[in-house]
Computed example of a mutant assay.
Amino acid sequence: MAGVRSNSEPPVSRSPRERGQEIDSITAFDRVAASGSLAGYRVRSLDLTDRTFALLSTDTAESVFLGCAMEPDAAAKVRAGGALVFPPVPGLPVDPYRGSLYAPDELFEGLVDAGYDATPDARAYHWYQETKAGGDVFASILRSIHDDAVSDALDEHLAGSRVVGIMGGHSLERGSAAYAGAARLGRRLTRDGLTVATGGGPGAMEAANLGAYAAPFEDGMLDSALELLSKAPYFRPSVTDWARAAFDVRRSRPGGGASVGIPTWFYGHEPPNPFASHIAKYFVNALREDGLLARSHAGVVFLPGAAGTVQEIFDNATPNYYRSRGEPTPMVLVNREHWTEELPTWPLLRALAADRPMAARIALVDSVDDVPEALARLAAEAGP
């Protein structure tokens, strides 16, 4: 049969780049399979049950099938042809082999009819808690595969973007002046052509993603959204009411601006916010935190927060200090009183930066309105 390599034939030699190429859609699968060779490709999360003939007639040497549904004959053939096959795992609330980031509608599916506890997001957290407590090594492997797939999808999505991270506390309530300020900041930075990335949770994170969502609309849209959201100011006691209010805003003004949220099921009591258009949700919090900071090449803005935000400041300061990621990235701390008196982080950051290249990349400003100018100034002072 044309295109099928017998077991006695030598393995197909492919370049490292070819060997790592991924197929994430049926259209791409059909295009490549038509050439007679899937050798070296990584085929991910596709339903191939009606592609049996293509699989039986195509070279699959050194290919890898991740979570693809196949008829038994097709699965046996591709294995015999030199492929690795990682079959789908039934009953999971997440696809560990997924090839794309999450969308809010996907994570919150079922919210309107059955409430938050019925959503894939809540079910994923419960699965994580159950398998972690039981020490299930297979579940641990699946979580690791999932997080690696999410990182890969995040890199693909952000390629070529100027990403600015916005960090801040999860306890910031809708309806507060600080929440409105964080939303204005997200809107301004998005309008300036930057991609806003946050930790993806509630509070200041949600506000920044909301601002990015509001960026394409007239200014009054954000004011209306803030008023509607203030009726459900916090995700406690009811995540359902909190999330439904956000989706009410989205339904009233569909087609908002894009931004990224990077939350974690490690903090499962904190739901992801629905205003990030693309959500990279992780099981391992350390991967999530480092990944967000490492990808924020255009700078990181630190709004007032508590222990978590302080940790993020110095998580970002360390590679800036040692230049382990290349040139230091801009860091802007917002609210002078908070960072010099309530939690005096700024004096220590400034002392660390003294006589080092990162000194030209840190700033303390009084309000969110000062952030865009500070980011531009830090970038200019550091030079090309």
Rank of each mutant, 00 (worst) to 15 (best):
T240E: 14
G36T: 09
L194W: 11
A114E: 15
P88H: 02
D117H: 08
D113V: 11
Y282L: 04
Y282K: 09
G99W: 02
D155K: 13
G199I: 03
A114T: 15
R187Q: 06
Q21W: 07
H338S: 01
A180H: 08
N285E: 12
G169W: 01
A351P: 00
E289H: 12
P202R: 01
I141P: 07
A75Q: 13
P357V: 07
D219Y: 07
V78K: 01
G193T: 06
P304W: 10
M331A: 09
W346F: 10
G67K: 01
P11Y: 11
F138M: 06
K77P: 03
Y125D: 07
D73V: 12
A380V: 01
A153V: 11
G255T: 11
G299Q: 04
N209T: 00
S8N: 15
R236S: 04
V4F: 11
S25N: 10
L349V: 08
L348H: 12
G200S: 07
P96V: 01
G181L: 06
Y179E: 14
F29H: 05
R250E: 10
V260R: 10
P272Y: 00
P372F: 06
A103G: 03
V284D: 12
N335G: 08
V301P: 12
A159Y: 11
M167Q: 15
S176W: 02
L378I: 01
I313G: 06
Y128V: 02
D136H: 11
A276K: 04
A243C: 15
L333D: 01
G201L: 12
V300H: 07
S140E: 04
A376F: 00
V239N: 00
